[in-house]
């Protein structure tokens, strides 16, 4: 077993040596989580916009539900997706279990509620400001919704980044439906868990450093976006 400082130095050299195994894992993580973020936005943003604009019975219940779904535990999502995709499950015939596609599905389900709930909040405030003006222009609901999504674009990008941040950092769902198979479904978080338990701290640390760097980049992007939002929002 290596000492911590040895592992750390090894980790740093791994990050900068272009280790193929390491970067393959990073690339798959990005591919899975970015795909899930895009899909979750395609589903979540229109739902957020619709609920932000609409007034209907049971809206309060729906909002509570959406907010509750934001806190879905990844392992539970993983389990549910597993039950559907396993060979005896209703969608077992697709043969998707232990593939990156299954991981994308699981992460999409995990973060779509986050995107929907957070974008609903953003767009509801914006709609309160714009509603009279939009009525005045006699916009259709679709026109108004699209205009809200566009005018909320900076805030919504931070919403998307929040979703991405949650996806890339979660381990429970991808572990269950991906299976952490080397060269096939191994992503950063599952690799860290495995390598740590095996005692290969160098690889675990190297991945940890990259994950941390990604998290900080997401934060920096959020801040930059908030500044752009301010430029367009204020007089």
């Amino acid at each position: 077993m290596q000492s911590l400082s040895d592992s750390f130095l090894l980790a740093i050299s791994l990050v900068f040596s272009g280790d193929q195994n390491l970067w393959e894992i990073v690339a798959l993580s990005l591919q899975v989580s970015l795909s899930a973020t895009v899909l979750a936005c395609i589903v979540g943003l229109p739902v957020g916009a619709l609920v932000a604009m609409a007034r209907f019975r049971g809206r309060g219940v729906l909002l509570t539900l959406m907010n509750a779904l934001m806190g879905l535990p990844p392992v539970v999502v993983g389990l549910l997706v597993y039950l559907h995709l396993s060979r005896s499950g209703p969608m077992g015939f697709l043969g998707l279990l232990y593939t990156p596609t299954a991981m994308i599905i699981a992460q999409t389900i995990l973060i779509a509620p986050i995107i929907a709930a957070l974008s609903r909040q953003v767009l509801q405030d914006l709609n309160a400001e714009y509603a009279d003006q939009f009525h005045s222009f006699s916009l259709t609901r679709g026109q108004a919704g699209r205009a809200l999504l566009w005018d909320g674009r900076f805030a919504l990008m931070t919403v998307a980044l929040a979703g991405f941040g949650r996806a890339i950092a979660e381990v429970g769902a991808v572990m269950i439906v991906g299976g952490n198979i080397d060269h096939l479904t191994r992503v950063m978080t599952t690799a860290i868990a495995l390598e740590t338990s095996k005692g290969d701290l160098a690889l675990a640390l190297a991945l940890g450093i990259i994950l941390l760097f990604l998290a900080m980049s997401v934060n920096a992007a959020v801040q930059a976006l908030q500044q752009s939002a301010g430029r367009w929002a204020h007089g």
Binding site: D132, S136, A147, D151, W232
Partner: peptide
């Protein structure tokens, strides 16, 4: 009758876009 009317509000609400895009939107 509303779609054949237009209104300039006492407090105008402008879109978070360029000046030209505000007109183009309408």
């Amino acid at each position: 009758a509303r779609w054949r009317q237009a209104m300039v509000f006492q407090k105008p609400v402008l879109l978070r876009r360029s000046v030209a895009a505000n007109v183009d939107f309408v």
